[in-house]
C-alpha cells in the first residue's frame, strides 16, 4: 500500500476591485468581486480576509458587507501615517485592479445572545457593521458606542443612521473619549460585549470588563501584543499525526520547526493575530502569546497559535 500525501491550504481567490469609495476622511471602502461574477465563499460576521499585496505584504481586513450578499465583499481601509505598507498600497488601488485574497476566516465570532454592547473605535467599526445587522435580525437588544477622532473621520455613519438611538456616536473633538465606565460599568449576565478598535481602546475595555462574567467580552486585535521573549527556552515538540519529535530552539517558533520537518501547517500573519495556525494541543502546558484566544480558551489548553505561543514546560504534543 502506497503512502497518501496530504497537502492543506487555505482557500485563495483572485478577485477584482469593483469599486473604491472614500467613505470618510482617510478611509476607503473597497468592493471585491469574482472576475467571472460568480459566488464568493460564505462567511459570518466578524470574519476577515488576507489581502496578498506582494512579497511578504499580507494584511488582514474585516469583511464589513452583508454576509447574505454572496456576490460582493466589502472591506474598509484607513490610511495610517505609520503604515507598514499595506494601507498605502491599498489606497493606491483603483476599480478594475486584480487582488489576491485568502480566507475568509473568523476568530471574532458573534455568539447568539439576548443582548449585546458593541464598542467600536475608528476603523474598528468594520467587523461590527455586519454584527449589528445580525443582532438586529435576531431580535436581540443591542447598543453601539462608536468613537472616532472627529465626526468626518468616522466611516459608515450614514449606514448607521437607520438604527436610530441604538447607535451613539462619540467624536473625540466634540465629546471626548468613550465613557467606558458608564457604558460597561454594570455587568449584565445576559449581555455579551464585542469590541474592535485601536489597542488603547481594547486595553481599556478589557480592564473595564474585568468584573464581567468570564466569556462575556470578545475583542479583536489587529496589532500583535508586545511579548518579552528574552527568557525563552528551548523545548520538545511532538507532531503526533506526523510521528515526529523535534526541539524548538529559544529563537524559533513551533511553526518554523514544523515547516523544517515538512509538517503541513497553515499560517498567515505569523504574529498571533489572524488565527490561521490554530492547532489542537494534546499534551503539555501552553504559554499563550497570541491575540486571538480569550481567557477561557487559553485556560482550556485545547488549542494554540503555533506561530507565537510556546511551552511553559519541557514538552508539547500537538495534533499535527
Amino acid at each position: 500500500m502506497g503512502v497518501t500525501e496530504t497537502v492543506v491550504r487555505e482557500a485563495e481567490l483572485d478577485l477584482t476591485i469593483a469599486a473604491v469609495d472614500d467613505v470618510s476622511e482617510g478611509v476607503v471602502a473597497i468592493d471585491l468581486v469574482s472576475p467571472d461574477g460568480g459566488e464568493l465563499p460564505s462567511w459570518t460576521p466578524g470574519a476577515h480576509v488576507d489581502l496578498l499585496l506582494g512579497d511578504d505584504l499580507v494584511r488582514q481586513y474585516s469583511l464589513s458587507s452583508d454576509p447574505a450578499d454572496r456576490t460582493r465583499w466589502r472591506i474598509a481601509v484607513l490610511l495610517t501615517p505609520d503604515s507598514r505598507g499595506g494601507s498605502k498600497r491599498i489606497h493606491e488601488m483603483r476599480a478594475g485592479d486584480p487582488v489576491r485574497v485568502r480566507g475568509p476566516r473568523n476568530h471574532f465570532v458573534l455568539a447568539a445572545a439576548p443582548a449585546y454592547e458593541f464598542v467600536a473605535g475608528g476603523i474598528g467599526i468594520t467587523p461590527i457593521l455586519p454584527m449589528i445587522a445580525e443582532a438586529e435580525a435576531s431580535g436581540a437588544r443591542w447598543r453601539l458606542h462608536y468613537g472616532g477622532r472627529t465626526r468626518t473621520s468616522m466611516a459608515f455613519v450614514d449606514e448607521l443612521a437607520r438604527y436610530g438611538d441604538k447607535v451613539t456616536l462619540v467624536p473625540q473633538d466634540e465629546l471626548g473619549h468613550l465613557d467606558l465606565a458608564t457604558i460597561l460599568g454594570a455587568p449584565s449576565p445576559e449581555t455579551l460585549v464585542y469590541c474592535c478598535g485601536p489597542t488603547p481602546l481594547l486595553d481599556a475595555v478589557e480592564s473595564t470588563c474585568s468584573t464581567w462574567p468570564s466569556g462575556a467580552l470578545h475583542l479583536e486585535r489587529f496589532t500583535a501584543q508586545e511579548v518579552d521573549t528574552s527568557g525563552d527556552q528551548p523545548f520538545t515538540v511532538v507532531f503526533q499525526r506526523s510521528g515526529i519529535e523535534a526541539v524548538v530552539p529559544a529563537d524559533r517558533s513551533i511553526f518554523a520547526v514544523a515547516r523544517d520537518h515538512d509538517v503541513t501547517v497553515l499560517g498567515s500573519c505569523l504574529e498571533g493575530i489572524c488565527g490561521t495556525c490554530e492547532t489542537e494541543v494534546l499534551e503539555g502546558d501552553v504559554d499563550h502569546r497570541d491575540s486571538v484566544l480569550d481567557d477561557d480558551e487559553r485556560e482550556s489548553n485545547e488549542v494554540m497559535m503555533i506561530c507565537v505561543s510556546r511551552c511553559r514546560g519541557s514538552r508539547l504534543v500537538l495534533d499535527l
Binding site: 497518501t4 497537502v7 487555505e10 465563499p41 470574519a47 480566507g103
Partner: peptide, 16 residues
C-alpha cells in the same frame, strides 16, 4: 488506490 494513492489536497475556508 491499492498501489499508488494520489496526494490529497485539503482547502479550508471559514465555513467549508
Amino acid at each position: 488506490l491499492a498501489s499508488q494513492p494520489p496526494p490529497i489536497t485539503v482547502t479550508v475556508s471559514e465555513m467549508t
